[in-house]
């Protein structure tokens, strides 16, 4: 077990005027650990995700990240250049709608290669080979490398978005409802793929979802949110099999059995 957390969140709050986005959220995330943030729409889970991923400035609180050199840095005291560099190298962000995370008008290869080019890769053949390899890892046929994501199905787009993020070997992924809007069979494939990639790459991830099955399959730990606050947290199977908080019991009991 590594001695230090990768990502440390302390008392993060976000207020919109006098409305609460999320309030007093604290947790640690260790390398290789997947944390699910669950709750219904409006529970503040997306606000929290945005505050953690530097997409939204929190009203108060501290978010620190342990850099590759081992130093822990307060994200909101970094320069914007450093934050953006982090976001496109050591982090990934998977949007619910792949169109938000992809460049729809350039080829799949260019989508995957963008981060490499941003890091200074200047060899077309190598970039394309790496991109093709990554398409294979997310189960997209190599002969689609020059096709635009516009010609892809929803599930393929989502897988492409994942490949685009993983190409730099990030250590932390943020995912906002990664399976939302996909057919059930497509969801299963994506989940299995994500699960495998997270395991193989030793990725840490924060996954926002309202789908408890997604949380069960992907995450080690869970945070249950309601009205911007954490109502329960713990080991994923413990929270789902022996929920303590009234709200978690309601959530778990509301799952339709197949």
């Amino acid at each position: 077990m590594t001695a230090q957390p990768l990502f440390t969140v302390r008392s993060v709050s976000k207020f919109y005027g006098n409305r609460i986005g999320c309030e007093d959220i604290s947790f640690d995330l260790w390398p290789g650990e997947v944390l699910a943030v669950v709750g219904e729409s409006g529970s503040g889970k997306t606000t929290l995700l945005n505050c953690l991923s530097t997409r939204l400035l929190p009203t108060s609180g501290v978010v620190s990240y342990r850099m590759r050199d081992g130093t822990s840095r307060d994200l909101y005291r970094m320069s914007e250049a450093e934050r953006r560099f982090l976001m496109r190298t050591d982090w990934g962000f998977v949007h619910q709608n792949p169109a938000d995370g992809l460049r729809m008008t350039v080829s799949a290869g260019a989508n995957v290669g963008e981060r490499l080019m941003a890091l200074g890769d200047r060899h077309y053949g190598q970039i394309r080979a790496t991109a093709t390899d990554w398409l294979g890892r997310v189960e997209i046929a190599g002969d689609r490398v020059d096709d635009q994501p516009r010609a892809f199905s929803g599930g393929m787009r989502q897988r492409l978005q994942i490949a685009r993020n993983l190409v730099t070997g990030p250590r932390l992924m943020f995912m906002d409802e990664p399976t939302g809007g996909l057919d059930v069979s497509v969801q299963a494939r994506l989940l299995d793929l994500l699960r495998g990639l997270v395991q193989d790459m030793g990725l840490a991830a924060i996954v926002v979802t309202h789908d408890l099955a997604v949380a069960r399959l992907l995450s080690h730990r869970m945070i249950v949110m309601k009205e911007g606050r954490v109502v329960e947290t713990g080991l994923t199977d413990r929270v789902l099999d022996d929920p303590q908080a009234p709200y978690t019991q309601l959530l778990v009991s509301s799952i339709l059995q197949v």
């Binding site: 953006r84 350039v106 260019a110 290669g113 963008e114 080019m117 941003a118 890091l119 077309y124």
Partner: peptide, 11 residues
């Protein structure tokens, strides 16, 4: 951040 410029050339 000029990676995007090469994305165009890549394309």
């Amino acid at each position: 951040e000029y990676g995007l410029m090469h994305v165009k050339l890549y394309e």
